[in-house]
Amino acid sequence: MTPALEIRGAPCGDLQVAPGELLAVIGPSGAGKTTLLREIAGLDPLPQGRVLLHGRDMTAVPVHRRGVTMMFEVPALFAQLDVAENVALALPAARGTLARDQLETALTALDLHHLARRRPQELSAGQRQRVALARALVSRPEVLLVDEPLAHVDPAARVALRREILRTHRRMGTATLYVTHDWAEALAVADRLAVLREGRFVQIGAPQEVYRRPRDAWVAQRIGVPNLLPCPVLGTAPGRVLVRPLGRELWVPADPRLADGREEALVLAHARALRVVAGPDAPADELDPSSGRILGGSFGGDHMDYDVETAAGTLVVRRTLGPGEEPLEVGTPVGVELVADAAWAVVRD
C-alpha cells in the first residue's frame, strides 16, 4: 500500500505514515520536531530529500497547494472571525452546499455548534484548540500535522481534548503526524512512535515496543525508565544476555547488538520491573547487593513508588498496595529483586 506520507533522504532519516495511521513524533525541546512538521507542510524548505504524499512528490509544491493541514501549538485563530468563520476558512469554496455540509459535519464532530457565533477571545484554551482541530479537519486533508496541541491546555481539559483528537482521527481516518514532548501523551495516542534526537530519528516502532525495548539509555531516560543498572555481560543466548544485577545472575531479554561480544550491558528496568521485598523475606545481610532501605515514596492511588537506597544506587521500585495495606515507612530495611522478563538490556555507550 502506498504510504499517505513519506519522507525520503532527509537529514532526519526516512519515515512513512500509512493511510489512517497516527504516528507520534517524540523528542525533547530543540530536537527538531516542529521544524520537521514545518518542512513537511512546506512552511520551511526541506534542506535535502523529498516529501511524498500518496506517492506524489510534493517537495517543490507551495504550502497552500500541498493538501496538508497543520494544527499548531497555539490555536492561531483569527480574532475578527467567529468560530464558524474560522473553521470555514480552510474550505476552498465557502459558499457551496458541499462546503456547508463539511462545515456542519466538522462543527458537530467537535461539539462546537453552540459556540459557532462566538469569537475566539470568548473561548477557553481547550475550546480554542477544538476549533483549531475542526479547522484542520474540515477540508478532509490527506495528511494532518499536529504540533503539541495540548501544550497550553489545562490538565483537566487535556485528557478530554486528547480523547477528542483520537476519536476524530479514528472516525475520519486521516494520516496524522502528531508531535509532542510528553511521553504519556505519545504512548496514549500513537499507532507508532518515532523518537527524534538532535534532528534524527533514533527509534521508530509501536508504542509498546519503544516502551519495553528502548534502543539505548537516552531513549530509556526520555520515556521515564528510572533504573539503569550497568552490568558485565557474563554470557549470551539468542535474544538474551546473562547478567548479574543486584547480586543475582539472570537471563535478561536483550538488544541483538549485545550478541556481538560486548563486555558491558546496561539493564533498563521500569519501576514495575523491580520488586520490593519487606519483612522477614528481606535480606538480613546489609552487604547483600539486593538489600536496601526506603528513602521515601510517592503515592499513586493503588500503588507506591519507593525510592530505595541500595549498593547499586537509589532505585525506584513500584509496589502494588493490597486492600488496607499501609505504605512502608521511611528507613524500613527491604530487599530489591529484578523481574528478568520485565527488564531489557542494551549496549552500554
Binding site: R38, A41, G42, L43, V63, H64, R65, V68, T69, M70, F72, V74, A76, L77, F78, Q80, L81, L89, A90, P92, R135, A136, S139, L145
Partner: peptide
C-alpha cells in the same frame, strides 16, 4: 503574528487571503 500567516497558508490560503485576514 507569523503563526497566523502560517495558519492561512497551511489551510490552503494564498497571499490574497493572508492580506485580507
Amino acid at each position: 503574528d507569523p503563526r497566523l500567516v502560517d495558519a492561512v497558508l497551511v489551510h490552503g490560503g494564498g497571499t490574497g487571503r493572508v492580506l485580507r485576514l
